[in-house]
Design a protein around this nucleic acid. Sequence first.
DNA 1: TGCACTTTGGCAACAGCGTTGCTTAAGTGG
DNA 2: CCACTTAAGCAACGCTGTTGCCAAAGTGCA
Lengths: 375, 375
Amino acid sequence: MNVPALRSPNAALVLDLLRTADETGISRLELAERTGLTPQAVSKITARLRSEGLATEAGHRASTGGKPRTVLRLVPTAGYAVGVHLDRDELTTLLTDLAGTVVARRTRALDLGAGAGPVLDAVTEEVRGLLSGPTAGAVEPAREPAHERTPTLTPAVPTPAPAPTSVLGVGVAMPGPLDHRAGVPGRVTGFPEWEGHPVREELARRLGLPVVLDKDTNAAALGLAVRPAAPGSFAYVHLGTGLGAGLVLGGAPLRGDRTGAGELGHQTVQLDGPPCGCGGRGCLEVLCLAAVARGDAAGAARILGAGAANVVRLLDIDQVLLGGRLVLAAPEVFAGGVREVLAGLGLPAPVSVAGERDTVAEGAAWLVLTPIFGK
Amino acid sequence: MNVPALRSPNAALVLDLLRTADETGISRLELAERTGLTPQAVSKITARLRSEGLATEAGHRASTGGKPRTVLRLVPTAGYAVGVHLDRDELTTLLTDLAGTVVARRTRALDLGAGAGPVLDAVTEEVRGLLSGPTAGAVEPAREPAHERTPTLTPAVPTPAPAPTSVLGVGVAMPGPLDHRAGVPGRVTGFPEWEGHPVREELARRLGLPVVLDKDTNAAALGLAVRPAAPGSFAYVHLGTGLGAGLVLGGAPLRGDRTGAGELGHQTVQLDGPPCGCGGRGCLEVLCLAAVARGDAAGAARILGAGAANVVRLLDIDQVLLGGRLVLAAPEVFAGGVREVLAGLGLPAPVSVAGERDTVAEGAAWLVLTPIFGK
DNA sequence: TGCACTTTGGCAACAGCGTTGCTTAAGTGG
DNA sequence: CCACTTAAGCAACGCTGTTGCCAAAGTGCA
């Protein structure tokens, strides 16, 4: 740990405060108070950030008897990130700015089981299309309106055409198991064709951009963790085609030794329950999906609640966030059911539905943005 | 984060390498290689540590063609720590040196249910006795042999009377729930008298030493985590009068938001199982202890294995360590049973019995030592 | 025995970081 | 109009680990 090692953490800390500040921005003195640094150091750091184009002055606060505080803001157009969500039957690609705001978005049908080759072809095509779109022409600036060139492109925000600038990288989220360090999937559930394919390397080569790979639930949890008012520790429980969880402890996602953390679906909750393909019995996923299949969402919610309670107790966490297609189909049933189980056990953790349509893809983009903010 | 902030982490890192080095010690160049610092920086840091009495030169390596490397060692007598284990029926107090080696040890019967007053009286008495013993006369040096003054004192190592020196603090481990930040127990299982009693503060005042309080399983896990060859992540599963776990992730114990992490006993593993006092059904502890009670240790081991598998999967960890009285009564039965369940689920995590008589008390001492080594 | 060679580890000068002390700038309110 | 308050920059400083250089201490060959 050498001295320049101080530079990035402190600058990242300041940058993160700029990011999470409310819309009015944040002044140097407020930064100093919240970082514990002296106002002088903050001045130095913000001067560097401004010269790098990452921050800017944006107006003044009302005076309280002296010189009014100058307000600083993050410059969201200083960088962009691509988020890719490889779901079992759908490919979502989106572009976010430095603040994580979605600038452009694409979707298309996908067969994940087709294997790495065709899927990576599709990803390459979608990312290229996204980047050559009108909103951030890093690769190939173009002026045509979105709907003429790329029918599926839907600008989420009517941004006044941000200047072309750098795309920092591509975050890819897909079902596990996989190794996020090596960027290589394992036997992706049901699709052994993926095992060992160097996805990160190949995509990085094709796109000429840094690529980060992670499990879908981890990405979703990361995306939720970076929200300004996010709790420090929580479990994101995702009930879609399968059941998984993303765990955030002390602000950082927990990946475990093999990127496998958050495996909630194969928790044993019924020792003598029905056998599961995993080799166990009474797995949470099997029981929960069976209840859904027979139309008993409330029953599924109670079973899910027992699983969530196990996690809350084991990790002593603050909050449970729910998401995934099945949850979104009946949000109140699931939130209420899980809440009831937790309350019955005297666990104070609040339960809410947080996962939305693009939660995973946005989280994937955050895989790229997160290091900049020291997370 | 200011510049001196670099000093402690780097010095702590070096100190930790000195601690975990093999018996021959470690040279400056080896320290440089393993820390990533330059040899010069290591020279500076080790010079400081030597001047503070924490490190010393201890011989030379064989030359490999030039000046032979000078070997450095930690000076274990540079500081001592007290570890206190408040078990339900027993009080263990021990003194360790800076390397964590037990120097002196005391035990006496205890009724934890008697409440904070009498128990803290006993702790105070034991700690004072320990410190005025012959091995480390910080409070009251004495020359009498151990067996004459303090019958229960058993020097673990025939140390040649280390010079009186500083006792860094007292670590206290007890059953939860409790708040390790405030140093205040909650409703200690079965003994509501403890709730809200300012244990840390009161002991610190009585003994005139810093006091750290933590849950027994967390302390045990910490003690196991600091061993030189310890895995980076593991679960320590303790089956004694109750069932609990200590979780170590990336080298650090996980305490959670309210020091409650590791609550394994009330994991639901049988949705329609027998009701438990906690409000749930089919809790792991209830099922496991019931199996033990009917003499079915192998069955208890299988149930415990299911719980351990849930933890291993959820956190994606390396290893499972077992401890606690019931496990120690039939170590092979439990280790074998848990191992079998994990193997049947395709989980590669090795299982071993690690908890011994003083695991918790030694871990408690490490609560004090750990900050010195940057852990 | 002598000398070239290798390696260790200390000394001195250096660059980078945040801090302290002071000054200037920009408002408010009597 | 002026005293007062607050913000923020400039200069000097102390601390860190780094680089460049050199002395010390061994080995091994002639």
